[in-house]
Nucleic acid binder design. Structure first.
Lengths: 134, 134
DNA sequence: CCGGACTTAAACACTTTTCGTTAACTTTTA
DNA sequence: TAAAAGTTAACGAAAAGTGTTTAAGTCCGG
């Protein structure tokens, strides 16, 4: 059994960064160039992003397609749409209006511009009322 | 920007499996051997495990070390130890006694045998009272 | 005990990732 | 603005991961 996605080098850099060290300081400590520290940190972040996306996929496997929010929809209308669709299939959404919008904003930030949805958003829901946006 | 950890092949197999197909049926559909379906599914599960472990690492970066539960401790004494340590640093743990034990069992199953902790368990905590066991 | 479902190991060709260098570039901050 | 911090691009070598085959397993219900 292997560890997670991150290499020793990547974890090392992330830990030093968390302590507030600059890339140059870390480069000195681990004896390499600051450019290399930058790329190691970057690939670490990329790996973390991929880990998150992998689990998102897993969730959509468990969930069923609920509806699709068309691009151009007012953000504040989204909860009503989702509550309505969930009611049709007898599932209680585990978010209220505000937290639903926050959940959406967090998971699909680039799809939310100001008060408007600027990309089609596919909505999945589990039996437990958990939502996933793709 | 690339996708998550899973390859097309791996997602394909997981989706078919979710539908309840056997490895042989999937092998026929995607034109390969059932042994290969098995290894693809296995590496998919391994990737998912690694994705989870990667995020766990990320959480421990945000969290501070709270205490270490020594091997041999009675499971039912663990909550009291953790509540005590958390109180010392003025953090409210977001679990009650029962759910804390469940959380521990889920995250470190192999470290819990019957009523006893059989490995040292390092406990991390965030400002929000979330716990991580390593 | 037979058969179906599943697992495992070794070996292979192939692709991707990683760490590293150098050098130029942009952004932030004092 | 000047210095420090951070980013990017191009490239190479080494390491790791993937899909595949073949062949030999285990595990379990009927």
């Amino acid at each position: 059994m292997k560890d997670g996605l991150l290499t020793e080098r990547q974890m090392e850099v992330l830990r030093y960064r968390k302590q507030g060290l600059t890339q140059q300081q870390i480069a000195d400590i681990i004896s390499t160039s600051k450019a290399n520290v930058c790329t190691i940190e970057k690939s670490a972040m990329e790996n973390i992003r991929r880990a998150k996306e992998t689990l998102e996929f897993l969730y959509t496997l468990d969930a069923t397609h609920l509806c699709t929010i068309p691009s151009g929809t007012d953000l504040f209308n989204v909860p009503a749409i989702i509550f309505g669709e969930a009611e049709k299939i007898n599932v209680k959404v585990k978010y209220d209006t505000i937290s639903l919008i926050n959940r959406l904003r967090e998971s699909r930030a680039q799809a939310c511009k100001a008060r408007v949805v600027c990309e089609d958003i596919i909505v999945y829901i589990t039996d437990q009322g958990e939502l996933y946006f793709v």
